[in-house]
Design a protein around this nucleic acid. Sequence first.
DNA 1: CAATTATAGTGAATTATTTCACAATAAGTC
DNA 2: GACTTATTGTGAAATAATTCACTATAATTG
Lengths: 210, 210
Amino acid sequence: MTGRIPKPTTARLCKVYSLLDELEKYGERSISSHEIGKRIGVRSHSIRKDISYLGEVGIVGSGYAIEKLKAHIGSKLGLDLERKACVVGLGKLGNAIMQNEKLFSNNFKIVAGFDSNINKIETIVTDIPVYPAHEITEIIRRDAIELAVITVPGHAVQEIVGRLIAGGIRGIVNFSPVSISSSDDRVFVSNIDIAGEFRFLSALFTLEQK
Amino acid sequence: MTGRIPKPTTARLCKVYSLLDELEKYGERSISSHEIGKRIGVRSHSIRKDISYLGEVGIVGSGYAIEKLKAHIGSKLGLDLERKACVVGLGKLGNAIMQNEKLFSNNFKIVAGFDSNINKIETIVTDIPVYPAHEITEIIRRDAIELAVITVPGHAVQEIVGRLIAGGIRGIVNFSPVSISSSDDRVFVSNIDIAGEFRFLSALFTLEQK
DNA sequence: CAATTATAGTGAATTATTTCACAATAAGTC
DNA sequence: GACTTATTGTGAAATAATTCACTATAATTG
Ligand SMILES: NC(=O)c1ccc[n+]([C@@H]2O[C@H](COP(=O)([O-])OP(=O)(O)OC[C@H]3O[C@@H](n4cnc5c(N)ncnc54)[C@H](O)[C@@H]3O)[C@@H](O)[C@H]2O)c1
Ligand SMILES: NC(=O)c1ccc[n+]([C@@H]2O[C@H](COP(=O)([O-])OP(=O)(O)OC[C@H]3O[C@@H](n4cnc5c(N)ncnc54)[C@H](O)[C@@H]3O)[C@@H](O)[C@H]2O)c1
């Protein structure tokens, strides 16, 4: 039944989408809620419930047609559109990301890189256009870039975020250790921090939280 | 009141810990639940409730003493111990991580690197010992390594996970696009995948989920 | 020092999410 | 074709998490 979708459901459906995308490549045609659950580590009830928020799409007694389910989730969650992305901070990590096409499936396309260091911009070898950091706002707006990956040192994060938001960015993946909490309702942020992940894992196994 | 701690609470407390760690460096002495909440993007009620799962530690009317609160969270969640970690896959990303000391605060220490490519092991320049991948199980056990970062291509993940678990690893941060779902109750996994993050952010702003 | 303001802690109420149980239907088997 | 098995979708029940409202206490102000 279509209605408000719980956030945890949205997160799981994104994983289901990634799984279907993968399976499709291997020529699979159909799959059951049980099998999906096993693959992404949740119970089959949850999978069925999650999918049911988008309306009926499976075949009772027979499972889900992969192509159809993927299209269904994709259109409801907006995962079927090609979206433009950029990388800010072209150091070790930023460069590795820019040059690793495989990271982005065919839904996301990196169309710009930014760095404050002019030397880097001039010496970098890539087909993707690179710009000085002060042009972020302008280029984001001009090229209608929706997503950004931040790979600058912590002290530079705040300024970068300001420019990205001024340009109208919609989503940010932040790899710097300085966490961003979005003040702007239209911008969504995901902070990724290895020490933070290590802490969480340590806490989980300290508390033995299943 | 001490009791079972909800998982979302555990996650937030880890963030609070990181924040306190940061503030302590700048010489701050005390902080209110309101200020903590603002910094990590949640309401002050939640912060107080979260902290209260660990017992009383604040001063009514006055806030929390940073050093004391940090020690308190740290000891309850096991964040105060130095834990050993390793990196598996010494390519672009793995190397960058190994060489970026700053990523790990002083709670985590990388004590080993692994790769299946013998040439890489011989040519790599680092103070951290590096080993061929078939020794993973042995070294993990010998050095009592609790945490691992996986930065190998997707096709190699399954085998690596098997070896890590055989050695007794407790937590894994997986950067490869092939997601791991832990079958073993004692092992906790965090999958980090840029396309996945982009998908989730896209879904959030498509649905306008605050 | 009296009044005011800031703040932690927490049981209770509310809201959100997950799990369950089962009807309905498709596919497979003999 | 009758019987068995596999499977979805979903309302209802159960659990989990968040938010609220309020008490108590510390700090600050005039
Ligand atoms: N190296 C890793 O493996 C790794 C892993 C996870 C997270 N991180 C984090 O990612 C960030 C980058 O790490 P790195 O190892 O690539 O560092 P790096 O020093 O190699 O690269 C940082 C880049 O950011 C650029 N920069 C600095 N200030 C800028 C600004 N104001 N605007 C635009 N560009 C700016 C620098 O010129 C440089 O090119 C750091 O915050 C780091 O903690 C790194
Ligand atoms: N490059 C990035 O910016 C980036 C960002 C996020 C995630 N990732 C992911 O991280 C992984 C590594 O990316 P990369 O760019 O560093 O690739 P890379 O090819 O530079 O490095 C991969 C390394 O893994 C080693 N390896 C291969 N099989 C192995 C095995 N069985 N045991 C041990 N080591 C093995 C290789 O020898 C190589 O050194 C990939 O899965 C990639 O998708 C990369």
